[in-house]
Amino acid sequence: MKQYIDKGKVDTRSGFGAGLAQAGREDSRIVALAADLKDSVKMGTFAKENPDRFFQCGIAEANMIGVAAGLAITGKIPFVGSFAEFVTGRVYDQIRQEIGYGQTNVKIASSHAGLTLGEDGATHQTMEDIALMRAIPGMVVINPCDYNQTKAATLAAAKYVGPVYLRFGRPSWPNFTDENEEFVIGKTYVMNEGNDVTLIATGHMVWEALQAAEILEKEGISAEVLDVATIKPLDEGTILASVLKTKAAVVAEEHNLPGGLGESISGLLAAKAPAPVEFINGGIGFGQSGKPAELLKAYGLDACHIAEAAHKAIGRSR
């Protein structure tokens, strides 16, 4: 089993910031729009290097989406950024009409997603954003797992022509993927090969799934770990091949059950390769204030819970 090393904890949003800055250097069509959270979303470097391509929209996210659509149809490549809740739920209809139905080349940079937003609590802590964005026809949904992958995904999103929802987080988090790995939109990465169960994870939960695989290995269970960095379109081939081999799966995401990766995987498996699936997610309720680590533990979004779920899935499959 491949061992992944934490090369130092760093927030995934900083990976976005580094990717945006690099994309901005490589392509003068790239512009960035903020709704008063420029530094939280890590647009600062881009803004400093490209003051004529950075636009502050103020606390007016709906207008920001429309302005971005106008910029996009005239040939610019806009990245709009704010907290995940405020660039999804708050502006769902604007995204649907101006970016989805209009098929405009807008990239939605969504920071502070999920429980690990932490102390601000449920008003800011969206656990529904993946569901909302998955539902929009033509929207690509990406949720990278660490700093390096978020940076690479940002560069890939900049080159891709079409609407992209790019989801990342606030907390410092292990950085463990190869910094030179190119990000391929639509690809699920096989992080570890195994035979007894498939641990399917996205975002921060990929690291937890890798830790769970180590726990399981000590218990004599061989777990395959998949990083579903692109939630939509789903890499059906890779996921099906894995579950057809292991015949049991756990899906882990920092998001609620309705409309999330778990339901997406369940739909795929029900249609093409029925197998027992256990779910690690935020459930069906709201989040609350707390430190990121204690919230993940309290809501069962960690390696121990993933390992327990793997036992259940294996038990149901045999």
Partner: peptide, 25 residues
């Protein structure tokens, strides 16, 4: 047709985006 419309209140923002783009260019 440059952009869909129907859900109200959004076109002025889109127009502002096009106007901004034209200024840049």
């Amino acid at each position: 047709i440059f952009q869909p419309s129907g859900s109200l209140g959004q076109g002025l923002s889109v127009g502002a985006g096009i106007a901004l783009s034209k200024k840049m260019d």
